[in-house]
Design a protein around this nucleic acid. Sequence first.
DNA 1: GTCTATACATCGATAGAC
DNA 2: GTCTATCGATGTATAGAC
Lengths: 213, 213
Amino acid sequence: MAAAPRRAGRPRNPVPRERLLDVARDAFAELGYAGASMNEIAGRAGIRKSSLFHHFANKDALYLEAVGATLAPLGVEVVAAATGDGDFGARLDRLGEAVSGYLGANPQAARLLVREVLDRGPFVVGDGRGAVEALLVTIRDFLAAGMSDGAILRQDAEHLTLSIIAVHLFYFAAQPLAEPLVGADLFTQDAVAMRMSAVSRQIRALVGVPVLQ
Amino acid sequence: MAAAPRRAGRPRNPVPRERLLDVARDAFAELGYAGASMNEIAGRAGIRKSSLFHHFANKDALYLEAVGATLAPLGVEVVAAATGDGDFGARLDRLGEAVSGYLGANPQAARLLVREVLDRGPFVVGDGRGAVEALLVTIRDFLAAGMSDGAILRQDAEHLTLSIIAVHLFYFAAQPLAEPLVGADLFTQDAVAMRMSAVSRQIRALVGVPVLQ
DNA sequence: GTCTATACATCGATAGAC
DNA sequence: GTCTATCGATGTATAGAC
């Protein structure tokens, strides 16, 4: 005989909104906006699709909140590093370590953010555009100030900004390319520490910080 | 009264297979694999969805061929530059110019290839994986040989390989971020020429080619 | 080689029970 | 706050006319 149909009822195991955002972030990062269905996200969180719609008005709202929650801490750290204490070299190192630390601690963050750029999503062409543009300008101005001060070589500040972002994001976003090449899990504590030192060295070379011999 | 229904019949305007691949490449680059439907691609090419299925067995086959056709010329140029004539610096410059030239001449190429990496598609985890891994190893070995020869600074060759790829791909893939920042269309002849010189300078700094003053 | 028509699954979203 | 059930639109893919 057929199994008794599951009945609706009071929630015995309510899922916190934060948990839903974490699950959505991972799903969007892995499958993309179009590929991650509301049903898939709900299933990963252990609830039904219609329950997910109770927390978020529609798929766009869920995506916006998930990406926003990923981008915001990164923006805070970048601004803090760029406008913080110390000479240019120290602030440059702090910026690189903060970004690599965040991306290394949140394995799907870089992948999600690169997807947002490729998809020309709300943080690139929509309402969240201002926040991202301001972040880009912050980095650009930070680098341009370093050139004016003679801390780094004079060069095209805009191309330099884009390359620094590229180096930071691509490494973690391209995990299945990077892992066989470096021969290790990218997201272990050791690997992230190694990444920090490698990327710090690369960025110093890229911007042209005079090397003291 | 209702319009007479369109009738099937002999093709009056057959669409070449190459044209279908170009259209598919652009659609997959703009919308992603999941976001680009067979109906959308067929519509862009001016035919019906079922006509598209006459040329390609299924969506996967179309995607595989479209990405393969984009990746192959790039692989050829990279190998030619890395194993070609001239000293290390000349080959490094040639590699950068070949890649930027190709990505600048094919506006959706970088975006498609970065998507393939994020999606962990057939060229990253599937049957085409060998070709991409061989390409990565070619670049890595080229750089490692430069270190052994003393042409560039000794450093982590794997992280360096990934950063060079990142710099090349991200700039063109992130068009809506790059264009307002550099203040110009990325794909004009002038902009591509400027990009070539900026990226050449950056890569030389990154790898640590001794600068002759 | 293109078309019309259709089969069947899954999509985002809603209604209403508990 | 979760559930069942359902809607209409769209997804991949196929059958068969011309």
